[in-house]
Amino acid sequence: MNTSQRQPRVELPELDAGLTLVDVGSDLGVTPVQSLLLDSIFAGDGDAYWVDAAGTAQTTRLRELAPDRRYLHRVHVARGFTAYQQTSLLDRLTGEHVTAPSVVVATGIDRLYRDTDVPATHAQDLLVRSIAALARVGRVHDVPVIVTRSRADEFTQPLVNAAQTHLRCEDTQFGPRFTDATGDVDTLVYHLGDGWVQTTLAYWQEVLTHRARMHDAPVVGEEATSGVV
């Protein structure tokens, strides 16, 4: 381990077991959520389960973010392409095939229920059912469940009501900042001190490398990373 290097303070919000709704500023994309997901597996022994309904489960970014490619074997992904498939998947999270996760992520939970092939009243019922299924996941496995939505509106209000924690991730001039409506959480992820901030891939890569080291989780050296295809 390289101990001579100065270790800047790098923080990500500590997540409690149960539902955490994360509203991410549109310019940040899914990266902050993927970062929270990876951070949870650095700290825990279990794997991450990710149900995506927003078409965001593309692995390119996740691969680039992960400090070691082996983490990709600890992230289990399933994508819902219809409202009904998503409903099945959320049920499956408490089934026998999902064992001891360290974190569960559901992205764009409302998106497919907005599709025109689902009747409006039925859609609301299904969404509420899905929120209940996710809350159950948190209870059964006693783990954090990170949820995102495609739009903050009346339709997704039940999600706000059900979430124990409601975080917003916004890009600020000092870097991405997670804030909580209650004021309990205010995490500026990484302040470089000299006013120079970037929220690009390289930034998040650095954040996650630091976080992995903090938890003594494996990190591949620069050389090895570039050698991976």
Binding site: Y49, R69, H73, V75, V77, A78, R79, Y84, Q85, S88
Partner: peptide
């Protein structure tokens, strides 16, 4: 209703 099975992100990649 039938969803895909969970798969490691490495496999999806």
């Amino acid at each position: 209703w039938r969803p895909e099975l969970f798969k490691p992100a490495a496999t999806l990649d």
